[in-house]
Design a binder for these strands. Structure first.
Lengths: 317, 317
DNA sequence: CATGTTAAG
DNA sequence: CTTAGCATG
């Protein structure tokens, strides 16, 4: 049974695509002859296998696909043929982090038809912000600011309840240059850990997003020179360990225990991406008891659009 | 006698071109295959007549050419084939306004060989700033901050003394959105007028640059709708009249009394330049008694590079 | 609409 | 290096 047929039956019955298409009725005296083609900033998408051969522990084929992507500014990201990619990937749920815009600022091209869209954009303009796209309407949705355990004024968390699991998409605070916001991060990690522990008592949890930490040495290209860098301090790594000790699994790593060079982020400096000098900062973390539903957890390292790449989670529910 | 021969004998005996060429020795693993050609942003320069047929009142041909240009950010301006234009224009003196950079920030491409370069960059980073390029070394040069009559902390004035005249290049303060800096502008105009009056007692003065005022209705495309706009208020226009009443001449206008549609600035909005919805804000103003030396005062409205175009002054000295 | 900041990553 | 903000024009 192909994924296409599976996905077809879930899609297209709901849309939030507004049609007040912000037509730029501007004072333009017919002088737009220059047709600036932005020249494809995307790789050849035909080389990508969007399906997944792996089965769940119970031998079942996936029937739900989740994509997570730190877009580092949704408006700039949209200009890089990312919608074409998303259409081919065709996930049931899309989690975006660092959208850096409000719902009002969101261009129409971002309002993918077939998805219900939830946005938590936070207070500071142009900073942080997360979005969740879902083909099916979740049982319930909570923004970070509605979650009592969290102090989320910056648009860092969206929680969506589905029949078999909670999905939590997050953009965890960066510890900052010179680690100047490491204390804020430590506080966040603690609160977030408690929140997930509590949530996990109700129903299995799938946590995804930019956790802003490379957990182990295998998860970063230059472990030795980055022990004082935001995202690879002992403090942040230990907090990730604490989270996992609460009964959560790093799904990519458990499926690929020895795989090196598997990163989801490369700084824009020094051609890092071309050299694969990267970090694995984006994860699908699953409640241990939900692992039987997991088919695969993969990294789309070819796909361009921001300094992070998308990651893909295939499950059977 | 061609201007080329004339200019040859003045040129090339002085240069400030430093050769510590800021070579970007960067961590670049041979991945710069993309050779991004910026595609010509300039018009066809061969269509321009860089010479001037007009003679001075005494029947003499020009032997000194001055160009003035508000570049609206020298670093961005440099990317628009402007050096190619300047080489073909080949002026003896170049006055630039709104360079928005310091001497240290100035790219090497801006250090045109054959010219001595003087820079007044002011305090605020990326704001205002003027430069003067001269093939011959002036008798003396004063920056605005060295002129006692002026309070020039923003990099708005360079004064150069030549044998027969003073050249003053200026970028006059904009009255601002909602005219919120009109008081500052009024104060500046008064001080500047006094300064020029004093200077004019010593030697004839040529004032050039962005005076940030369209003097008369003929100097602006939409006089009726701009009476409350910075650059066309009664206050600013009256101050320009006061300056002229002190014994100065608007050289372009005296040579072209009825010429309409002659502008040196077009806002970037609404395709103004393509529609020639512009303002004449850039001038060559001459002491009345120096008018006998003036051959022509022209506008290079075809030449691209900023929201202003260059203006050219041909004199015999 | 364009330029050069700034803060943040 | 890149995004988005802002102030200024």
């Amino acid at each position: 049974m192909s994924s296409k047929t599976k996905q077809k039956k879930m899609a297209d019955y709901i849309t939030t695509t507004t049609d007040n298409s912000k037509k730029r009725a501007r004072n333009n005296d017919g002088d737009d002859s220059e047709s600036k083609k932005p020249k494809s900033t995307q790789v050849d998408l035909n080389k990508i296998n969007f399906d997944c051969e792996r089965k769940s522990a119970k031998g079942l084929t996936w029937n739900l696909k989740i994509v997570s992507w730190n877009v580092a500014g949704l408006r700039a990201w949209l200009k890089k043929d990312v919608v074409e990619y998303l259409k081919k990937e065709n996930p049931d749920i899309i989690c975006l982090q660092e959208i850096k815009c409000t719902e009002k600022q969101m261009p129409d091209e971002a309002k993918l038809s077939g998805y219900k869209i939830y946005i938590n954009s936070g207070d500071k303009a142009g900073y942080s912000g997360v979005a969740l796209y879902s083909k099916t309407i979740p049982i319930s949705v909570r923004m970070g600011k509605e979650i009592k355990e969290l102090d989320d004024t910056e648009g860092r968390v969206i929680e969506a309840e589905y029949e078999k699991f909670f999905l939590v998409s997050t953009y965890i605070p960066n510890a900052g240059a010179g680690l100047k916001t490491l204390p804020k991060r430590m506080k966040w990690d603690e609160e977030f850990r408690k929140y997930l522990k509590e949530l996990d008592t109700k129903k299995p949890v799938v946590l995804t997003g930019d956790l802003n930490v490379a957990h182990e040495e295998i998860d970063i290209a230059n472990p030795k020179t980055n022990t004082k860098s935001a995202g690879f301090t002992k403090e942040e790594r230990d907090n990730m360990s604490l989270l996992l000790e609460q009964g959560f699994i790093d799904t990519f790593r458990i499926l690929n225990p020895e795989k090196t060079g598997a990163y989801t982020f490369w700084t824009y400096f020094h051609n890092s991406r071309a050299k694969n000098v990267g970090w694995r900062l984006d994860y699908f973390i699953s409640s241990k008891r939900f692992m039987d539903n997991v088919c695969d957890s993969t990294i789309r390292n070819e796909v361009l659009g921001s300094d992070h790449c998308p990651i893909v989670f295939y499950i059977n529910v």
